[in-house]
Each structure stands twice: as structure tokens, then as C-alpha cells.
């Protein structure tokens, strides 16, 4: 039954750890937006404005250099 106990403890530990990760992620999402570091909602535009000729929401650096 020892393995069962280890399994149980590991499982509980995992759940707690993941809860932290989950809430950490939510906080991360909102905080980085509040601080103005990133704006997640602008990524929604990627689907709407998707012509080949329209400028990327966040271009790759190499491309930026090329176009300069």
C-alpha cells in the first residue's frame, strides 16, 4: 500500500501546485495588461486583419530590419 500513499501525496501536491500555476497565470495576464506591458486583446485583431499586405500586430524583428 506504500505506493498508494506516495501516489496520493504526490497527487495532492500536484493539485496544489497546479492551482498556484493557474492563478499565477490569471494574475500574470491581468497584471501585465494593467502595467501596460502587453495588451492581449489586440491579438484578437490577428484574425480580423489578416491580409497578406496588412501589417503584422507584432512583427518578427528580422522583418522589421528588412523593411527599414
Amino acid at each position: 500500500m506504500d505506493t498508494r500513499l506516495i501516489q496520493g501525496v504526490a497527487y495532492l501536491g500536484l493539485i496544489i501546485f497546479l492551482t498556484f500555476i493557474l492563478y499565477g497565470y490569471i494574475i500574470h495576464l491581468y497584471r501585465s495588461e494593467k502595467k501596460g506591458k502587453r495588451n492581449y486583446e489586440k491579438y484578437g485583431k490577428m484574425a480580423l486583419d489578416d491580409e497578406l499586405s496588412s501589417p503584422p500586430v507584432e512583427p518578427l524583428e528580422e522583418n522589421e530590419k528588412e523593411s527599414k
Binding site: 495576464l29 492581449y40 484578437g44 484574425a47 480580423l48
Partner: peptide, 19 residues
């Protein structure tokens, strides 16, 4: 979103539900 012209209601929620 493309057909309706409306961006995803909450992009953050979409990320969260993904994980």
C-alpha cells in the same frame, strides 16, 4: 470573428481555457 467582424470577446479567456 472573421465572418462577424468582431474580435474574440476575451482573448485572455481563450488562453486560459486553452491550458
Amino acid at each position: 470573428p472573421k465572418e462577424s467582424g468582431q474580435p474574440v470577446y476575451s482573448y485572455k479567456l481563450s488562453l486560459l481555457s486553452f491550458w
